[in-house]
Design a protein around this nucleic acid. Structure first.
Length: 116
DNA sequence: CGAATGACCAAGC
DNA sequence: GGCTTGGCCATTC
């Protein structure tokens, strides 16, 4: 029997969180976007938005095919990082439009979450 | 082990 | 609407 970590989460659950992030991101349909906080909330860890960001930051090479570009911050902006230009290209290629202030209108493009 | 570092966020001004 | 502040949590130094 494994002893839970001090924060109440077993070590395998922590380790599996990254993988669950990847599984969920893989289900975001083309032309839609999700936010870091939304991903965290859907995985039942509402305060782990930063950890979702870290999971995508350290995305393994063999998972580079999954639609990481469909994840934006809560303001509908692309988070600051080197490949932000490519992220915007990929989104616009799917029909996602940006406002003049470089924000995606979440009211129009935000993903509803996985279909049951 | 404490301190610093992020692809974050909500609240306050 | 923008900018600052404090909190958040895994990872790294």
């Amino acid at each position: 029997m494994r002893r839970p970590a001090p924060d109440g989460l077993s070590l395998p659950e922590k380790a599996g969180f990254f993988r669950r992030v990847y599984d969920l991101v893989a289900r975001i349909p083309p032309g839609r976007v999700a936010t870091y906080g939304q991903i965290a909330a859907l995985l039942e860890h509402p305060r782990w938005a930063r950890t979702v960001g870290w999971a995508l930051h350290s995305l393994p090479e063999d998972l580079s095919h999954l639609p990481w570009h469909r994840v934006l911050n809560g303001q509908g902006r692309i988070s600051t990082r080197p490949s932000s230009a490519e992220q915007r290209r990929r989104l616009e290629a799917e029909g996602v439009r940006f406002d003049p202030d470089d924000r995606v209108p979440l009211g129009q493009f935000l993903w509803d979450g996985p279909e049951p």
